[in-house]
């Protein structure tokens, strides 16, 4: 009787072990998978290459071409005759291309003062959180702008005077699946400024963040703080922008509101005369479309 009982117990145990053997196989795999050292870079800190006007740490992948159309209507406070700004438009068309996964290059042409711009961006550091190695992503941006608009009263404006340069250190962290933030110390150099009281080298600190509201949508905010007493002769306000990103496959569609009409660093940071409180709000959108010119390995 006793022996039977023991038999029974052991048979049960054996059966239990049989099914457990499967799980043990899987567990041993999971363990060795977890033990393998690998660095996982954080992806998708931002959906697009622009938060609103400010560039993000993101770049097109090697061999990918991004076509960017940025559009701003006129100011909301321009009245019903101008249909609250909808009769006017400022447009920037740009191309961004990934030379490698880290280095990208871009060109653009904006209708604001008929400005050409170009930039190089290098992903210096990439956030990798899985073993706490790198808390931040850092990209270095160097850009140049050249406005070509004719001013009949300023015949002295030669090509040197029309150039301005921007250097930015884009620092971003994806805090969670939903929230990312970017902080960008900015140095702009103007070859020519309106008066001797204005600084040729202008310092600014830009900040931006995105909060995802669904898997494919996010709300963005951007603020560009210009340190005081640098731009003196023209009225200037800090640029504040809000955006709503909608991603559909290869497109990112961004609806934006900003008190800046221009879209290049050398202009929106130091040449934003309007304020939100006076209704100098420019409604517009950014549309980006990704094209793959090379197969990704």
């Amino acid at each position: 009787m006793k022996t039977r009982k023991i038999y029974f117990v052991f048979t049960c145990l054996l059966y239990g072990l049989q099914t457990e053997a499967q799980d043990q196989l899987l567990q041993s795999l999971k363990d060795s998978l977890a033990a393998a050292p690998r660095t996982e870079y954080v992806t998708g800190t931002f959906k697009a290459l622009y938060i609103v006007n400010m560039k993000t740490i993101e770049a097109p992948a090697a061999g990918a071409l991004n076509v960017e159309i940025q559009h701003r209507f006129g100011a909301l406070n321009s009245g019903s005759y101008e249909l609250f700004g909808l009769d006017n438009a400022t447009l920037r068309m740009g191309l961004d291309y990934g030379i490698s996964d880290r280095l990208s290059v871009g060109i653009g042409r904006s209708s604001f003062q008929k400005t050409f711009d170009g930039y190089l961006k290098y992903k210096l550091l990439r956030q990798s959180d899985n073993n706490g190695r790198m808390p931040l992503s850092v990209s270095i941006l160097s850009s140049m702008s050249y406005y070509t608009q004719h001013f009949p009263d300023k015949t002295y404006l030669n090509s040197t005077y029309r150039l301005a340069y921007t250097t930015q250190v884009l620092m971003a962290r994806k805090f969670s699946r939903l929230f990312s933030m970017e902080l960008t110390p900015t140095l702009i150099h103007y070859n020519l400024v309106p008066t001797s009281a204005d600084q040729n080298n202008v310092l600014a600190l830009a900040g931006g963040a995105r909060m995802k509201i669904s898997r494919r949508m996010s709300i963005n905010v951007e603020y560009d703080y210009l340190f005081p007493n640098q731009v003196v002769s023209t009225p200037v306000n800090n640029s504040l922008s809000l955006g709503w990103d909608i991603e559909t496959g290869g497109h990112v569609f961004q609806l934006v509101f900003s008190n800046s009409q221009s879209m290049t660093e050398t202009q929106y940071i130091t040449q934003t005369p309007g304020t939100w409180s006076h209704g100098d709000i420019y409604f517009g959108f950014n549309i980006s479309r990704n094209f793959n010119l090379k197969v990704h390995k």
Binding site: Q18, A21, Q22, L25, L26, L29, K30, L33, E40, T43, G44, A61, A62, A64, R215, R216, E247, G249, G250, N290, N292, V295, H296, K297
Partner: peptide, 27 residues
């Protein structure tokens, strides 16, 4: 025992288009 098991990391899937890979992982 004829038992078998597989395990993989989803981030290990490589797509010919990098953006698709990002969307696969993110969305």
């Amino acid at each position: 025992s004829h038992h078998l098991a597989f395990a993989l990391l989803l981030k290990g899937f490589i797509f010919p288009r990098e953006l698709m890979q990002e969307h696969f992982n993110e969305n």
